[in-house]
Amino acid sequence: MERRWNLQKIIWFAMIILSIFIVVFPIYIMFKYSISDRSSWITGGRYPVPWWPFKPTFEMYKYYLSDTRFWGNGFLSIKIALLTVALSMFFGAPAAYSLARYKFNGKAVLLFLILSIRLIPDISSVIPVATVFNFAFLYNLPVTLKVALAHTLLGLPYVIYIAQGVFETIPVDLEEQAHIMGAGKLYTFIRIILPVALPGLAAGAIYVFLLSWNEFVFSYFITATSSVDVLPLPVYLKSLFGAFTPNPVSIATLSLLVSLPVIVFTFIIQKYMVAGTTAGAVK
């Protein structure tokens, strides 16, 4: 095959380089800071901040990774995030399915209302939610469940909206065919609809995982009275620094550490995101 460099190809290539740069550059900056020794980031203006630390050090990593509370609360946050994914899928998918399949007046309005919950700033919607969580029967729930429930509240609108779109793309014929052959509604939903919808739902799952993992405001208010041993990671980190501004090395180190679970989760889920699973269903 002939390889020629025309303008279109050059622009294409430049775009790819640019996108890689946009993704990689911040990671490089974070990594550089996370392994910087003191003189590599406090320069006092006498010399420029170097592109690579003078004496790279993993001190900050050692410091955080030897903190048992960091590990414990990190795992707590992972548990919360997974539970949030499970809960929002459990409640969201059937709701989305009904919205996708049954026609009724005011459906568009309802969909908009569901999403519009997220138009209110978290900081104002947290007050009523935190109040509700002060009722005894919720107050005494384990922290994991309490925070996951709150996060489910945040994640549900997205799950419903995304999943609704996914279900709408699945031909009704599949269900009718199963129905004629004697499959019940629930069986059809679990055995036919869900597997076919999986790739689309996976995107929703990743989104909700991220949302829960990064969430601070709701977690903070709901765990206001919890012991420091059981705090979601963002809340715990806030408690570490108190009123002080953490230095760039801490921030960079934590940012990188905290991205890891998201990357792992995304990789696991990605397997289900193969495009075009409805291919071959209908002609």
Binding site: Q177, P195, V282, K283
Partner: peptide
Amino acid sequence: GIAMVFQSYALFPH
């Protein structure tokens, strides 16, 4: 006691 083949086939893709 019927079976139907849809205009669209409606095969289960998964």
